[in-house]
Design a protein around this nucleic acid. Structure first.
Length: 466
RNA sequence: GGCGCGGUGGCGGAGUGGUUACGCAGCGGCCUGCAAAGCCGUGUACACCGGUUCGAAUCCGGUCCGCGCCUCCA
């Protein structure tokens, strides 16, 4: 099984071979915990969860190390603290908990390691000291700055020309900088703000250094894949490369750089002022997490994605088809363990191995669905059902209990009075038997108005939530 | 201005130098008391203009349109 991934560093698809098949190492930039996660945060979480699952399928569950950080020190967090007065530690803990709940609802596996920036100040300071000592960084007015001209290869990832970057600069350059392109590794902290003692005075780390320090700590100097949103290519990832490479004596940093595409909502750039800024938390009140996940995976990860409520609604109805077929196929429900023990679907794996082509993988799922719907007899149905579940597993889909899904229990919808539904279905059955179709249709219409759809099957009438 | 990404049928959305993507919606049929679900069948496509080619929607050049990034936090 070969995997090809689009490497931003090469601007081309490349065959992926890990440095160590016994320990495939993946780093993804996680959230800054100051506010609810929005769909723009959800996309990389879901996309790289699929990559994690693919790597586990190909190299074995225990042979992939997935690190996703939590940025819990940042100017936005301090700004939130100043605005509300809530202690910084409370903000970050509360927001981290909410993030965990959100991504779990989206069906994302926990990463192998989830380091917090504030727990790695020692590593960051050691790296900064190393950069100062080797002449790649300097101290100025309480700041430590990375000196960009000290790295001739700077700009390779984002394909930026060093000279043009100065010409295009539109922000006033701080006077203490030796070069306009230099960026902060450490900056002084105001007395009332969070800060740590350091050889350069009390302060806090710059934005980029945490990822360099934590990836080095958990994945070593050179590792396989670094992922994140395309908006991080510059300056964040460019600066990570500069810091890590220079601190590591020029040895390579991440070998593959993967970036998910931008996200729009309702046809426009995501913006709070336009009112199209969806938080995952709000969406989960309206849709099952799996529907949001499917809506995100229906577009290839590098393509721009226009996220709409209509799109999630359609994804929900698509899942209704899958779960309806699974429910009809019988067998013991296996919540959370779909595909476990079953051989991975080679067509799905091949699609995902082709630069995470999730839309193609989903087309395979639809083939498996049709096969299941055509299946006759218990044995054939059981085999088709297992095949569909095995196809969904690498995508993190179809792991819920089908019966619970069809009853609408997997979303945040209000609980139903099942006794009332059952008694009215019984009343309708009696009316049908008496050929009182007028009454039977009235009962069915009644239920429909409450969001309950009836289906008459050879085995009796079943219902589902609209 | 610099760098980069994208424009596929009513909608969503893959892919490929010559062969059905797939899903939704639509239409016809089977099934059904009627529906629903499912199954079978079915139509419209590759922004524009040039070029390369036996042949391009797929490669090259240009144009138009949409979008993003261009830092040191304010």
């Amino acid at each position: 099984m070969s995997i090809a991934l689009y490497n931003t560093l090469a601007r081309a698809e490349q065959r992926f071979e890990p440095l160590d098949p016994g320990n495939v190492r993946l780093y993804v930039c996680g959230p800054t915990v100051y506010d609810w996660a929005h769909v723009g945060n959800a996309r990389p979480a879901v996309v790289f969860d699929v990559l994690f699952r693919l790597l586990r399928c190909v190299f074995g569950d225990g042979h992939v190390t997935y690190v996703r950080n939590i940025t819990d020190i940042d100017d936005k967090i301090i700004a939130a603290h100043r605005a509300s007065g809530e202690p910084v530690a409370d903000i970050t803990r509360r927001t981290t908990d909410a993030y965990h709940a959100d991504v779990a609802a989206l069906g994302c596996l926990p990463p192998t390691i989830e380091p917090r920036a504030t727990a790695h100040l020692a590593e960051m300071q050691a790296m900064i000291a190393q950069l100062v000592g080797s002449g790649h960084a300097y101290v100025a007015e309480g700041h430590v700055l990375f000196h960009v001209p000290s790295m001739p290869d700077y700009g390779r990832l984002s394909r930026r020309d060093l000279d043009e970057m100065i010409a295009g600069a539109r922000v006033e350059v701080a006077p203490y900088k030796r070069d306009p392109r230099d960026f902060v590794l450490w900056k002084p902290a105001a007395e009332e703000d969070p800060g740590w003692d350091s050889p350069w005075g009390r302060g806090r780390p710059g934005w980029h250094i945490e990822c360099s320090a934590m990836s080095g700590r958990y994945l070593s100097e050179t590792f396989d894949i670094h992922g994140g949103g395309a908006d991080l290519i510059f300056p964040h990832h460019e600066n990570e490369i500069a810091q890590s490479t220079c601190a590591h004596g020029g040895r390579p940093f991440a070998r593959f750089w993967l970036h998910n595409g931008y996200l729009m909502t309702e046809g426009a750039k995501m913006s709070k002022s336009l009112g199209n800024f969806y938080t995952v938390h709000d969406l989960l009140a309206e849709f099952p997490g799996e529907a949001i996940r499917l809506a995100l995976l229906q577009t290839h990860y590098r393509q721009p994605l226009d996220f709409t409520r209509e799109g999630v609604g359609q994804a929900k109805r698509t899942l209704d088809r899958f779960y309806g077929a699974l429910r009809g196929a019988g067998g013991a429900p296996a919540p959370g363990s779909a595909g476990k023990g079953a051989a991975a679907d080679t067509e799905v794996i091949a699609a995902l191995g082709s630069d995470l082509n999730t839309p193609l993988a989903l087309a395979v799922l639809h083939e498996r669905l049709t096969t299941l719907n055509r299946a006759e007899g218990a044995a054939e149905k059981a085999a088709a059902r297992a095949a569909l579940l095995a196809a969904g597993a690498p995508l993190g889909l179809l792991a819920a209990d089908p019966a619970a899904w069809m009853r609408g229990e997997t979303g945040a919808a209000a609980a139903l009075d099942e006794d009332s539904i059952s008694s009215r279905i019984a009343a309708r059955a009696a009316a049908r038997k008496a050929r009182d179709f007028h009454e039977a249709d009235r009962l069915r219409a009644d239920l429909l108005s409450e969001g309950i759809i009836l289906e008459d099957t050879p085995a009796g009438t079943i219902w589902r939530r609209a």
